[in-house]
Design a protein around this nucleic acid. Structure first.
Ligand code: FES
Ligand code: FES
Lengths: 150, 150
DNA sequence: AATATATCATAGTAATTTTGTCAAGATTAT
DNA sequence: ATAATCTTGACAAAATTACTATGATATATT
């Protein structure tokens, strides 16, 4: 599996925040209950999301987390990268590609580059707003699954 | 890193086989020397490649491995899938997606599906022949790197 | 001031996966 | 025969994953 639980759970959590955008903050306890996740594991996830500047936190009673930008301003790629690190097929592509022999010397470089470009192209093109729109268009009238596997 | 050493080393090994297509088989010892890899680890890799039907083996002295098809008939995706398993972002897409709540019930399903489609679209479109062509076009005149990091 | 509600920070840990190594056997060309 | 080569299975160190646990700090409410 390419995306670990951190990325998958984190994306589900960010989806809840996107649905609640403009309203009061959501606490970890609320999100954990909504998405059936461990509270303490979610804390670790939100620590990374906050470090990446994707969420804002409010401490104390009635506090919680809100999106740092509009749902349309946050891409799935930003969320996954914050939680998984750079989504590279090999260390030879991406921002910190040190010591790579590069294209012209290493024949597989062009492969990793194309995979990376395709991947980032997809995940950067989808925003949290797109997820919310899909939700309203397709799902609102049906019962939602409680115990999802993703 | 999305692709582990098995997939990365295996692709480099298959690239050597593609360059030698139509000639005598290449032994593991030769491939290991050419790509600077461990012979015993390569044996495991070729065991999987053979199980997937991508290479043919010849035992005994002078034996080794050859591609089971033309370089143009084997895609990078086939090689990586044979070595890494299905390249799925989450268990909810791909051939053995059991117990998934599916789109319409789980909002993130469409995300995993799009990532999967994008990924497979890229890796299935590139064949070993493309790699060989790139090699001849771009690299043949330059010195090749000995110790690559991919 | 006291209390309940939250985030924040760090440490520990069991299970799994990765990344190999090692050794013994089977097959075939010469 | 013999050397070369694939084949198979066991083993293991290291890294990663997927959590759990604990305590500290900040804030709203009473
Ligand atoms: S060394 Fe960077 S792609 Fe091979
Ligand atoms: S349960 Fe399959 S995508 Fe969520």
């Amino acid at each position: 599996m390419i995306i670990s639980t951190k990325g998958r759970y984190g994306l589900r959590a960010m989806f809840e925040l996107a649905k609640a955008y403009g309203q009061d903050p959501l606490s970890i306890k609320q999100i954990a209950a909504m998405q059936n996740l461990s509270e303490q594991y979610l804390e670790q996830i939100f620590s990374k999301l906050k470090g990446a500047g994707l969420v804002r936190s409010t401490r104390g009673a009635g506090g919680g987390y809100t999106l740092a930008e509009t749902p349309g301003g946050i891409s799935v790629g930003q969320v996954l990268t914050a939680l998984e690190g750079e989504l590279v097929p090999a260390d030879c592509v991406g921002d910190d590609a040190a010591g790579c022999a590069k294209a012209g010397l290493c024949t597989t470089h062009i492969i990793w580059q194309r995979i990376y470009d395709g991947f980032t192209g997809v995940v950067n093109a989808i925003t949290l707003q797109d997820m919310v729109d899909d939700f309203h268009r397709l799902i609102a009238d049906r019962p939602q699954a409680k115990n999802v596997k993703c």
